[in-house]
Amino acid sequence: MAIEIERKFLVRDDGWRTGADAGTRYRQGYLTGMPGESGLRSSVRVRIAGDRAELNIKSAELGIRRLEYQYEIPVADAEEMLDRLCIGHTVEKVRHHVRIGRHLWEIDVFGGDNAGLVVAEIELAREDEPFERPDWLGEEVSDDPRYYNVYLAAHPYRTWQ
């Protein structure tokens, strides 16, 4: 069983950029698991990250600990799924990596319908694992469903009030 322990935060300012890599462009969409679906137990996502593609299945519970399974798939298949099978909006972002102490942070700078949103994520080995909080880190949103990519595909950031 694959478990993901991940915490999400808003980003306060651009201070993270000084230690960041060049980033990788992501395009992703959902085949199922959109908010509001009855009996929702998981989301199924297709993603292209740079020159790689994957199918991802995550349990639908809210919080920092969830089941997660990832499988590499051909990029051409992923492109066709994104163009023809996905529901909701496609989520576009550039993901940057920043090392702080012994942890690797993922900074997602959203584009398209979610432009203006910047979220930092950190994966942990344990829910209570301590980590260094950089100055650019803002409010924690791990328990706020609006900041999950599946929600952004159904309710883009530009439509929030």
Rank of each mutant, 00 (worst) to 15 (best):
T159W: 11
L117D: 07
E80K: 15
Y147V: 02
A120C: 09
Q161D: 14
I64M: 15
L55D: 04
I100T: 07
A125E: 15
A125G: 15
S59P: 00
P74W: 10
E79T: 12
R25V: 14
R146V: 07
R84H: 15
L82I: 05
G116T: 03
A154M: 03
R102D: 14
E140L: 00
S43N: 13
D51R: 11
G19W: 02
A120T: 04
E61G: 14
N114R: 00
L62C: 12
E61F: 12
V75E: 05
A2F: 14
P134N: 03
A53Y: 01
T32M: 12
K93Y: 05
V109M: 00
I3K: 14
I122R: 04
G23R: 08
T90G: 05
D144A: 07
A53F: 01
K8H: 08
E92T: 06
I3A: 14
Q28K: 06
H96Q: 10
D21Y: 02
D113F: 07
E68C: 10
N149Q: 06
V91F: 03
R66G: 03
V46Y: 04
V46H: 00
H155S: 11
R27A: 12
I107E: 06
R126C: 10
R45S: 04
V11Y: 00
V119P: 04
G19T: 00
E132C: 11
R158N: 12
C86D: 00
I5C: 08
